[in-house]
């Protein structure tokens, strides 16, 4: 994911998790940029799935060429 504030590219595992203390911390899917702390939205599952699907089609197309 890419931070919308400072532009840092980071992986989900690197991101700081939802803020401690917030009652919604358990369900909140937002991630914090490891550099500036800005909240970055996760990609919805279906978007990820769609991208993976699109990627596989593209890969198949490339393999076929």
């Amino acid at each position: 994911m890419r931070c919308d504030f400072c532009g840092t590219v980071f992986t989900e595992a690197e991101a700081r998790p939802a803020c401690t203390g917030c009652p919604l911390a358990g369900v909140c899917k937002k991630r914090k940029c490891p550099r500036c702390g800005y909240e970055v939205l996760p990609e919805p599952k279906w978007v990820k799935a769609l991208k993976a699907w699109g990627g596989s089609i593209f890969a198949g197309y490339k393999a076929n060429r």
Binding site: F5, A18, C19, G21, C22, K30, K32, G37, Y38, E39
Partner: peptide, 10 residues
């Protein structure tokens, strides 16, 4: 930049 209370607090 906060726009969400938790962000701003952190």
């Amino acid at each position: 930049l906060g726009f969400g209370c938790d962000t701003m607090a952190t």
